Amino acid sequence: MKMAAIATAITTALVSGSALAAEVYSSDGTSLSIGGRAEFRGDFQGQESGAKLDGTMDNKSRVRLNVGGKTQITDDLSGFGFYEAEQKVNSSGGNDKGTKGLTFEQRYMYVGLESNNNAVSFGRQDAATVQISQMSDNVATHSGIQKTYIEAGDEQINNAINYSGYFMDALSVKASLLASSESSEDGYALSGIYTLPFGLGVGLGYAANENDGTQDSKQFIGGLNYKWEGLYVAATYTQGEGSKKLTSADNDFTSYEFVAHYLFENNFQALVGYQKGEIDPSGASKIDVSDYFELTGVYYFNSALRTYVTYKVNNLKADSSSLVEDADNSLRLGLRYDF
């Protein structure tokens, strides 16, 4: 495979996670594709959360499977559906199968209609502001924190009704409504990313939802990213109130993320990331819920198979809060196959 083709596939995979989905059926305007990943992830020094690792390795391996379909209704109108599930190894670390060793956890399940770069979808899917948090949430191993503060700004949420549109070959607009089955827990989100001709993207978003019996939540989020050949850099910032990480009292939250990675011509990629998040409860001291640097090296054998090593420098200090565990650093080795 030519170097440019590999680089394109790698960039696409960072954004979509299912760039290699294979079409297994196509007839009369209806198609079906299957994709996913199988990934070994072993932590050899400290756990991912920062907790102490008593043994030799904490196995965080997983497999994901997804199925996507599309049907052409008219020249300008099509329908689509998507499902994805994930299975992890058992959490005990022993040889027993365990509950998680037997169960696939639902990630996405939605259907929708699309016409001329405009789409409406219904089901379990990402909130509108996730396109902003994903600007910096593309390091090799650890998840971004920006999407985790409030329900209406999170990924893989139930009862979501989404709109997405793409305009002028530069502007991505998303809106979502969270129609909860519970009393007084509805929410909504709006976001947009505009990408300038020279590769600079600017994103802004807002999300809010009711919390029955506790403080209502709201979140502002902004992001910048820049792409040039093999270089990608991005930063996001969010602030708001009513974080679901701490529901015992009114609270404000702020956090920011930074990521940079460069893909060399030999298919080696170097990544560096930083994440910081804190909650400020009413009448109490601020609580750091995330604070770390991450250094990663990735080697792509081809567009389907990669291996990586990541070192996470955890700056959290354990305190009386149940949100903060020990602050051990961690070393992760990984091997990932996309299909």
Rank of each mutant, 00 (worst) to 15 (best):
S285P: 06
A5Q: 15
F122P: 01
F80S: 01
A4Y: 10
N251E: 06
N66L: 05
A304Y: 09
G334Q: 02
G222Y: 02
G46C: 00
S176M: 07
N251L: 01
T310N: 09
A127D: 04
I157S: 06
D328R: 08
I279Q: 04
G283T: 05
T71R: 04
E105K: 11
D54R: 12
S49L: 03
S16F: 04
S92I: 08
Y83N: 03
T99L: 12
E185D: 09
R37I: 13
K2T: 15
R64D: 04
E229S: 13
K312G: 00
D54V: 07
N138C: 13
G123F: 06
Y311G: 05
N162D: 08
Y188Q: 04
Y163P: 15
N116T: 07
V120W: 11
K100G: 10
K245V: 04
G277C: 01
T103N: 14
A160C: 11
G36D: 05
M3N: 15
N315R: 12
K174C: 04
G230C: 03
G55F: 06
S26C: 10
G297I: 04
G36V: 04
V67L: 09
F339W: 07
L32P: 00
S176D: 02
G144D: 02
F339S: 07
G222D: 03
Y25L: 13
D186Q: 08
L316A: 08
F104A: 10
A22G: 07
A304G: 02
L32K: 02
L113K: 07
S49I: 01
G46R: 01
T195Q: 09
S78Y: 00
A4G: 11
I10A: 07
A284R: 06
D291V: 11
N329F: 06
S31Y: 03
D54K: 13
A260N: 03
A260E: 06
D288C: 12
G165T: 01
K312Q: 14
V202W: 08
M109N: 10
T195M: 08
V324Q: 05
N211T: 06
E229A: 14
Y188F: 15
L316S: 09
N314L: 07
K227D: 13
G165V: 05
S143Y: 15
A208C: 00
K52W: 05
K88S: 13
V111Q: 04
R37L: 15
K286D: 15
T103V: 14
L263S: 09
S330P: 03
G17V: 01
Y232T: 11
S164F: 00
L271R: 05
G68E: 02
E229L: 13
G79H: 07
I150V: 09
G79E: 00
D54G: 14
S285Q: 12
S255G: 15
A179R: 14
A179E: 13
S91R: 15
G222E: 04
N59R: 03
N302I: 00
G240S: 03
S184H: 08
A234L: 12
L196A: 12
M109G: 12
E185K: 11
K52D: 13
P197F: 01
S321G: 03
G123W: 00
